[in-house]
Structure formats: C-alpha cells, structure tokens
C-alpha cells in the first residue's frame, strides 16, 4: 500500500490520484524515423519487455501520451513532427531518443538534418546514445514516469509547438 505520510495536503492526493494511472499506462507513439527505431522495436520485444511498465505502442497520435522521437529528423520531416505533436492530447511528453534527436549527433554537419528535435517541439527527456540500448530506453521511460509524478493538476504543462519558434 502507498504510504500516505503525515499531514498530506489535498492537492498532493489529487495529483497522486491523477498521475499514478497516467504513469503506469504510458502509450507511446510508434514514431521510428531511423536507426533508433529498431532498438525501439527490440525494446518492445520479449527480452526487455516494455509492456510490463504498461507502455504499449500506438500507431496514431490521438491515442498517445508520449512522443518517442527515435532517430534523426530532417527539415522535410520537421513540419510533420510538429503536426504529430500538436495532434496528441494533453498532457503529452516527449522523449528524444538517440544523439540525432538530441542534437543532430553524427549528422550535425549535414545540410538537411534538424540539429536537435528540441528546435521543433519541447523535449522532456533526452536519451543519449547512438543507438541507445534497450536498457537505456527503459531507464528513460522510468525517468519520464518520475517526471509525471511531479505534475500538478492545476498547471497546464505544455503549450503548442509554435511557441518555440
């Protein structure tokens, strides 16, 4: 059982009530652009089973809580990524997986790759590696869960991606 502690306040309880189910059923958008997508598939596979955290892949952004940007994003793709993000319902989280999504990585000198997906959409957790191992992805997912527990119900946490520009 959850230990309530002494003298808890009402908002905390409500936050806890809202966040616990949220954190234990992270549905992520299957958005595999490049190499990291394969590691994402393997993380969903039998060995490092993402299902045990309640994380299931969805094919449509309308049903997803977490945008898992797995791989490099090019300028041609940038508008689509932004649109996918805007189509997701609130509250939404973004996990930039791999060096390309973090900063451009190996392709930072390229003419066509966006230098980090945080130039287009707000990112919650950055996961380094090229490509990150499934264990690392698990850890990133747990980090997202920790982050979710800190959310307050009264604060609208994310805004539209247009604010970044």
């Amino acid at each position: 059982m959850y230990h309530w502690g002494e003298g808890f306040a009402m908002p905390t309880k409500l936050d806890w009530l809202l966040n616990t189910p949220r954190k234990n059923s992270i549905w992520y958008l299957l958005f595999a652009t490049a190499c990291c997508g394969i590691e994402l598939m393997q993380t969903g596979g039998p060995r490092t089973d993402l299902d045990r955290f309640g994380a299931v892949f969805r094919a449509t952004p309308r049903q997803a809580d977490l945008l898992l940007v797995a791989g490099s994003v090019t300028y041609k793709m940038a508008d689509r990524v932004r649109r996918l993000y805007d189509q997701m319902p609130e509250p939404k989280y973004v996990l930039a997986m791999g060096s390309c999504a973090n900063s451009g990585g190996l392709f930072a000198r390229s003419y066509s790759v966006v230098k980090g997906v945080d130039k287009i959409i707000p990112v919650d957790v950055y996961l380094p590696g090229c490509a990150p191992r499934p264990e690392a992805l698990n850890h990133a997912l747990l980090t997202i869960q920790k982050r979710m527990m800190k959310d307050k119900w009264s604060v609208r946490r994310t805004t539209s991606s247009e604010k970044l520009l």
């Binding site: 940038a78 003419y111 066509s112």
Partner: peptide, 20 residues
C-alpha cells in the same frame, strides 16, 4: 543543389535555425 561543390549550407529552413 546540395551535392555541388559550391553549395552553401542553409542557415535556416522554415524558421528552424541550423545553428546549435
């Protein structure tokens, strides 16, 4: 045309800056 030798890399595209 990017693969030409005299191609100048863009500094931004559709408002996304290429600087980091």
């Amino acid at each position: 045309h990017p693969l030409r030798k005299d191609y100048v890399f863009p500094s931004e595209y559709h408002g996304i800056s290429a600087e980091r």
